[in-house]
Design a protein around this nucleic acid. Structure first.
Length: 423
DNA sequence: TCTGGGGTCCTAGGACCC
DNA sequence: TCTGGGGTCCTAGGACCC
């Protein structure tokens, strides 16, 4: 059996943890640049505030109902996420961290009759140790466990936040209560198509044939989905040692950018961040892609972003920030056109290989050991002090383009000067 | 004036080869 | 005057996830 442990309204729960007065109150958290709503407590959901809705469109409703609003505070969420996952790792032998607020657990070996008790124990211990409420779904496949989790979340009182789908009857009832668009793996395009076929519930989808799924539901992806809905596991637990195959750092600018110098600074900064992520997993990258998003329409109200990108293949894979920046700058020059209004830029590193297995090109100098040591020192200092104390000059010093985060809470758990105070 | 960021996997189609 | 079939590899783009 597999379990999915999912934090309830994770970002909003993190904010509430340090503001007890907000318990039982509506809270929302905004995406970068205070753009969209990305987390809502049950009280905020009840007000009809939609997920991923633009903040400005909901502002009236939010103010009218006295909803507490926060900018994203990734230091705080990252640290609390680590505490939740570490708790699960202590309690359970095989944990796959799926996202910042979800983990799959392999429950193989646990007595079927004691699964419910065990899931309740997991939930209560996690909440006791971290203060973050979670819901748990348990079933034979990942997709079914997600179905169970959703139902547990929708009826926190009736289910105590835990739902198991063990018998065929339990599975049928759960699937009948689940609209197709709420099935893990069915997105906007898929659910639209399914509705045209008059398939409205997960149960109806489960009863379609594999041949039908192969033809109409994205080939092997559709077949796998149907099997998983029937309880046949096709999506296995992932190896926790797997490294990322692509590393991206992309951001909207706090305000539009027009000058090539600002674009260069932003890209150099994003490369620095992406290279840190690369070094953290002991990898090197061979391909750098840069993209920019413009909005060149003259009318003030027209929002038609257009994206363009360029990439370069390095002579050999590297994780050295200075080398990556050096190769990226000509791409920026080539992408830039004077007079354009830039909204966003991004860096994507790919062609990723383990750093100790880099194939050196016969005619190129391999990375110098000293530069590697410098990188490690920079990473350590930046990690302990945070806030990019050390950075390359090409990243700029004024950084007007940096994003807005006007409503950010304190970094209670990761900065000494912002620690939570108890009087 | 304002609509996030970071990933994975799969497919279709072109280039190329024998 | 004629112009196959099958295979692999790569890339771009779409769909999906949280």
């Amino acid at each position: 059996m597999k379990a999915i442990v999912d934090c309830n309204s994770f970002y909003a729960a993190c904010e509430r943890l340090f503001k007890p007065a907000l318990h039982g109150k509506p809270v929302v958290v905004l995406s970068n640049n205070d753009g969209c709503i990305v987390s809502r407590t049950d009280e905020a959901k009840a007000l009809g505030i939609k997920m991923a809705g633009p903040y400005y469109q909901n502002k009236k409703e939010i103010e009218k109902n006295n909803v507490a609003v926060f900018s994203s505070n990734y230091h705080l969420y990252g640290d609390l996420s680590w505490r939740v996952m570490e708790t699960l790792r202590i309690l359970s032998p095989h944990v796959e961290v799926y996202s910042v607020d979800e983990s799959f657990l392999d429950l193989t070996g646990i007595d079927e009759n004691k699964l419910h008790e065990y899931a309740l124990f997991l939930k209560q211990t996690t909440e006791l140790w971290t203060g973050i409420p979670v819901s748990i779904g348990v079933a034979t496949s990942k997709v079914l466990s997600k179905v169970a989790n959703r139902l547990a979340k929708n009826d926190k009182i009736g289910t105590q936040g835990v739902m198991l789908l063990q018998t065929p009857e339990q599975q049928m009832k759960a699937l009948q209560k689940t609209p197709v668009e709420d099935v893990w793996g069915v997105g906007a395009a898929g659910s639209k198509k399914l509705r045209l076929f008059n398939i409205n519930t997960a149960w109806e989808l489960r009863n379609m044939s594999e041949e039908w799924a192969r033809k109409n539901l994205g080939g092997v992806v559709g077949v796998r989905l149907i099997k998983e809905l029937r309880g046949e596991p096709c999506i296995e637990m992932k190896d926790p040692l797997e490294t990322k195959k692509m590393i991206a750092t992309t951001r909207m600018f706090g305000k539009p950018v027009y000058e090539v110098q600002e674009l260069r600074e932003a890209v150099a900064t994003y490369i620095s961040r992406a290279a840190e992520k690369l070094r953290r997993q002991s990898s090197a990258a061979k391909i750098i892609s840069i993209f920019v998003v413009t909005n060149n329409y003259s009318s003030m109200y027209e929002y038609k972003p257009a994206s363009s990108s360029l990439y370069t293949i390095l002579p050999y894979a590297t994780s050295l920030t200075n080398l990556l920046i050096e190769h990226a700058m000509p791409l920026v020059e080539n992408l830039y056109s004077k007079g354009s209004k830039y909204l966003k830029a991004g860096v994507i590193l790919s062609g990723i290989v383990p750093d100790n297995a880099v194939q050196f090109n016969l005619f190129e100098q391999p990375a110098h050991q000293n530069e590697k040591i410098l990188m490690t020192m920079m990473d350590n200092i930046n990690f302990s002090m945070r806030n990019d104390v050390l950075k390359f000059a090409s990243s700029g010093t004024k950084r007007d383009w940096k994003m807005r985060q006007e409503l950010r809470s304190k970094r209670f758990t990761t900065r000494w000067e912002e620690l939570f105070e108890v009087k």
